[in-house]
Amino acid sequence: MKKQSILLIDDDIEMLRRLTEVFLAADFAVHAAPDGLVGLRRFEMSPPDVVVTDILMPEREGLETIMAMKQARPAVKIIAMSGGGRIAAGDFLKLASALGADAVIAKPFRLADLLKLVEQILAPEGSGDVGRAA
């Protein structure tokens, strides 16, 4: 069975290392990028099943990156990581929609919660409840 692929984008290399480690342990094919510009190049070279991107980054910000990716491949699933703090449960859908993402997770989060969110978002339609909050 083909591994599911994930593109992780974060300018914080230590964070990127932790994210990479947890998704490798969960048997994903992992691609990582330190900013939106490199992320977009990797996205074009090897389109992933899901993208997890930080919002606030140098070079090319997360919002531009999300827009460019959705324009190129509208079906791609994108999760945005917000560093702005914990979000009230009802605000997740609104925020994700405003960002052009499929879901949002607020830092600080548990890696286990992010992994769960990715698995939910990749699950076939109707096979479970897709959580948008964390």
Binding site: D12, R18, M57, F109
Partner: peptide, 21 residues
């Protein structure tokens, strides 16, 4: 490289995220 504009809250949340991770 253009530096990211991080507020103190962002910095703290990023650090806490790394500690938890």
């Amino acid at each position: 490289m253009t530096p990211a504009r991080q507020s103190p809250n962002h910095e703290l949340n990023n650090l806490l995220c790394k500690i938890i991770g």
